[in-house]
Structures are given as C-alpha cells and as structure tokens.
C-alpha cells in the first residue's frame, strides 16, 4: 500500500476519517459503546431539532427566517410524497421525512472539517436501504396480497416479452437495496476521500499548497450540492419504491 505511507512527505490516509472509534477512548467496541459516529448522529438529531422544532416554536403566521426554511423543507418533502404517491402515500410521510432529514443532516454535517460522515458507513446505508426494501415489500404484500406481483408483470409489454421482463424486473427489484445503499455511501465516501487526498497534497507542497486548497474549495462546493442531491435521491427513490407497494402495476 504505497499510497498510504510513502516517501517524500506524502502521508495521505484518505480512509482514516471513516474509522469508528470509541468516543471516550479505549479500544473496546461493544454494541452499546458510544462512538464518534454516535456523537455525529446526535448532532444530526440536534440540527434537525433546531431547524424543525426550535425554529418553529413561535408558530408565527409571518415566519421568521428559520421558520421559513423549516416550512420549505417540510413542504418540499410533503409535495414529493404527494406528487408521486398521491394521498395514499401521505400515511408514510413521517417515515420519509425522518429518512430525508437524517440523511440530509448526516451528509451536510459530514462536510464540517474533522467531523464524521455517518452516511459514508456501509452498515448505516445498507441498514437504511434494507429497511426501505423490507418495509416496501411488506406494505406491498399486506396492502395488495397477490396483486403485488404485478410489479414484476408488465402489462403494457407484448405477451411474449413479459416473462423475460419479469425476470429482469425481479432481479432489479432485489438489486434495489444494493444500489440504493451503495450510491449514498459511495458518493459520501468518494467526495471525502478526494478532499482528503487533496489535503494531503497541500500538506506536502509548502507555498504551492494554495492550488490544492483552491481545488478543495471547489470540491467542497460540489460536495455541498452532492450532499443535498444524494439525500434527495435517497428520499425520492424511497418514495418511488413505496409507489410500487401502494399502486403495483400502476406505472
């Protein structure tokens, strides 16, 4: 691993930032040990609370700035659910809002220097995606029974093609949690690793460090967009998958 510890002052360890450590020192890591990830998840809850609960505490008809942001945030997710799922989907709106809030807060907080990016962890995104996958499947089966299988049976296709399409649909259905989770994790990890690599260059270049620093600024600006878009994509994919459960074969 020449890139990890190399000669000439390049000491770049882009992956080190993703290491999970116990928060209060020590090396033991039990399932309940508070870690640096726990800290940043707590901060994510705090940020969401500050925006959505403390920001709206006055319940003003003419909103303050924070309250406006909270309202826009709320209506953004609300409209997303309503547009795609219709009114039937509004039952699951709190669930979607929670997911979106969590992912967005975690993504954005991960951009703070020296912070820990919760959503760059495979365990987190896979758990989230599996939760979505399982809930969609279970809700779909409970609500529709055998009709849920129409998701795989494309009525609009020619009859001869339908079995082939069914196989493809089944495969793509089960690949969903994989791409759903890896997309989020990969995006978060890639951006941070790139920033870290540039930061390593900056440490070794002396005066010329200004170029990597400029590059970091650019990448960071891009990462802000990516943080939002990935949260949005995660949420909207959840909503689209949920649509299969609510209206199977209705696409």
């Amino acid at each position: 691993m020449a890139s990890d510890v190399a000669e000439g002052g390049f000491n770049i360890q882009p992956m080190e930032q993703f290491v999970i450590k116990p928060l209060f020192g020590g090396h033991e890591l039990n399932w309940y040990t508070p870690t640096n990830m726990t800290l940043w998840m707590g901060i994510a809850i705090l940020a969401a609370t500050l925006l959505l609960i403390v920001g709206t505490r006055r319940r003003a008809i003419v909103p303050t700035r924070t309250q406006s942001i909270a309202e826009v945030f709320y209506s953004f997710v609300y409209r997303m659910v309503e547009d795609i799922n219709g009114t039937a989907g509004l039952k699951y709106f709190p669930y979607i809002l929670t997911l979106f809030t969590f992912v967005l807060a975690a993504n954005s907080l991960g951009l703070v220097p020296y912070s820990f990016t919760t959503t760059s962890q495979a365990a987190i995104t896979v758990t989230l995606a599996l939760t979505v996958f399982l809930s969609v499947t279970i809700i779909g089966i409970i609500k529709n029974g055998p009709r849920f299988l129409k998701v795989f049976w494309i009525d609009s296709a020619p009859l001869a093609l339908r079995p082939v399409l069914a196989v493809i649909e089944i495969i793509s259905y089960f690949v969903r949690p994989v791409s759903h989770s890896i997309r989020l994790m990969g995006n978060m990890m890639a951006g941070h690793a790139v920033i870290k690599v540039f930061a390593g260059f900056a440490g070794a270049l002396g005066v010329f460090a200004v170029f990597p620093v400029l590059a970091i600024m650019g990448v960071l600006a891009l990462e802000v967009i990516v943080a939002f878009i990935q949260a949005y994509v995660f949420a909207i994919l959840t909503v689209i998958y949920m649509n299969d459960a609510l209206h199977p074969g209705g696409h």
Binding site: S179, I182, R183, G186, N187, M189, A190, I229, V233, I236
Partner: peptide
C-alpha cells in the same frame, strides 16, 4: 435531471468502490 445525474454518477461511484 438531478435524479438522472445521480443514477449515472452512481455507476462511477461503483467503479470507485
């Protein structure tokens, strides 16, 4: 468009992974 970008970008992310 952004969703499309995210899908396309995911493939690059997969290769990075």
């Amino acid at each position: 468009m952004f969703i499309g970008i995210a899908f396309a970008e995911a493939m690059g992310i997969f290769s990075f992974l």
